[in-house]
Design a protein around this nucleic acid. Structure first.
Lengths: 336, 336
DNA sequence: CTGAAAGCGCTTACAG
DNA sequence: CTGAAAGCGCTTACAG
């Protein structure tokens, strides 16, 4: 019941000061120590909780942040990375008293995107998944809202971003494989169009570096979606064309699970005959047989950092760094 | 740039009417057809987007909905059900112009819960995960906010809720197993404390019914957390105590994946020697070997229904039904 | 440091 | 149907 009934007016009255004084004492404004504590006490006694809408109206800020995902809703909810990072973002937003507004829109619907972004009333946005298109890029720029990317933005879009250390991830995977004596290593990549920057797959680069240190080069590199089917198909292809394969770096846990599946059906033992390293360390990774050795993405840190960057830009308008790169971690299980 | 610069005042001026008239014409208020179209045209021309804060302040509604999860943040983000349903909820909120506010709090921190709920400024809440405690129950009740549960609430808490048809799920699993000629069926349940209503596991009940129709009773029933480890341990125990087992109903995909793992290590063939049916149909289910036959939860429907119920209660204050139960679906893959 | 006043952008009785 | 006015709860120059 006793909903929004206590206002700052009540607090002021109880503290015996003017409303404006109460406002200052409650916030950062100037107020004598005595006044300040009197007012705060009154606020406590009354269980005063300030009306957000009024604060927003006067401050001009909404505390709403748009989470931009340029995917079909269907895909977005099925994608483990997106679901997970969005959950984490909600966690860090909540601590910062920020409200998320989901802008989930197919990469073809530029009008819808513009409308949603406008109606959100958001102060800024964090872009979680972005399929490049000129119009979308223009809309973001034209909005003038502070923007932070999760993952490196496409070339030409110079927004600050957070990213796991992709190269290090690839390197760790490659190193593990060569350290375990694997000589015929194959890479199963994600899709090419999402690579960053244009055409460069950092996970692959890192892995190739590590192989190079053992005087090796990849036996083959296959790209496709980050999913289970791609893992199966790619693995089958490889088994046909390069039966000597003894190591696989699959660039997502789903791909790795697919590879494991294909390997199993072809009668290969993992890791005895073929070692498999995944990437992500999502739920899937601990549910395969054998359990997946993989590279863990620091999702919580990424979400927190993206939030911090945005808050900073919201306040200061500027941000000193253009990117924050977080270390990844090799998680040893059974597949390599 | 051109941020929040166009107000209703500008629209009114351009349409040649008073601000109050513009407000009515834009909304549901009375206005002549001519006036209404004039005003709407003006709004379009000016790209008018109403200031949410002001609307809220006058309407007394915030459009904020608290999503309540009484878990440690750590657990919540790792739990597939929670992450997934929260994502879906964000989707349906977004369509309804509702803002989610995450109230993620350990089940022991009642003060924190009360504070968060208050500060959220939420109009209502949807409870996604609730570990019963008297204090938490009291806080929800005392808040007076319209509340909807995802999953059946504990006895004594009479809030409307949405739920998949748990009994049907168990029944489908049991039926599939007996239809395939399995005679020695074992159930690996989730935790007992979350069961609803107190002590009754509907998934188990449904399965027992189906077994009964084939004149069978479960060989054993083991409960524990919804995770991989529980699946492994339970399966190993069963293999030791009931080596004749030929069918398993695991009440989460994670448990099922664990069971598959244990079966694999003990040299059992799935589904030849032992058939396994899971529950959830989350990512994990399509990444095991063999791929998991499971019962799919209708997450999108659940989220949408919960949102609809809440919106209805927000508006009308009442809701005709106390629950909406959605059918589950058997997803045939390879494990049974 | 403090108070009185104006204003944020909208909606809603109140008269006409 | 329409306009003028008051008010939602807070903050912020402006004087003192």
């Amino acid at each position: 019941m006793a909903q929004q009934t206590v206002t700052i007016r009540d607090v002021a009255r109880r503290a015996g000061v003017a409303v404006s004084t109460a406002s200052r004492a409650l916030g950062e404004g100037s107020a004598s120590p005595t006044t300040r504590s009197k007012v705060r006490q009154a606020a406590q006694d009354l269980h005063f909780v300030p009306n957000m809408a009024a604060k927003q109206l006067t401050s001009g800020r909404s505390n709403i942040v748009a989470i931009v995902i340029t995917e079909s809703p269907d895909f977005a909810f099925r994608d483990a990375f997106i679901s997970d990072i969005v959950s984490r973002l909600m966690g860090s937003f909540s601590k910062a008293n920020l409200l998320p507004f989901l802008v989930l829109i197919a990469p073809t619907d530029a009008d819808g995107f513009m409308r949603l972004l406008r109606n959100s009333g958001a102060d800024g946005m964090v872009v979680v998944s972005f399929h490049y298109s000129k119009r979308f890029a223009t809309i973001i720029k034209a909005s003038g809202k502070p923007t932070v990317f999760v993952g490196k933005p496409p070339v030409g879009m110079n927004y600050p971003y957070v990213d796991p250390d992709q190269i290090q991830g690839g390197y760790l995977a490659g190193q593990l494989l060569t350290n375990h004596g694997r000589r015929h290593v194959v890479l199963i990549e994600g899709p090419v169009d999402m690579q960053s920057p244009a055409g460069k797959n950092l996970r692959t680069e890192g892995c190739v570096m590590a192989l190079g240190e053992a005087s090796l080069t990849p036996v083959d590199i296959l790209s496709g979606p980050y999913d289970f089917e791609h893992g199966i198909e790619a693995m089958n292809t490889i088994l046909d064309t390069h039966p000597e394969v003894d190591g696989v770096f699959a660039q997502s846990d789903q791909i790795a699970a697919g590879a494991l599946h294909a390997l199993h059906q072809r009668g290969k033992r993992v890791p005895r005959d073929v070692a498999v390293v995944g990437f992500d360390d999502f739920h899937v990774a601990s549910a395969t047989s054998p359990r997946l050795t993989t590279i863990a993405q620091p999702l919580t840190e990424l979400a927190q950092a993206a939030t911090d960057m945005l808050i900073h830009r919201l306040k200061a308008g500027e941000w000193k760094t253009t990117a924050q790169i977080f270390p990844v971690k090799l998680v040893m299980r059974e597949s390599a």
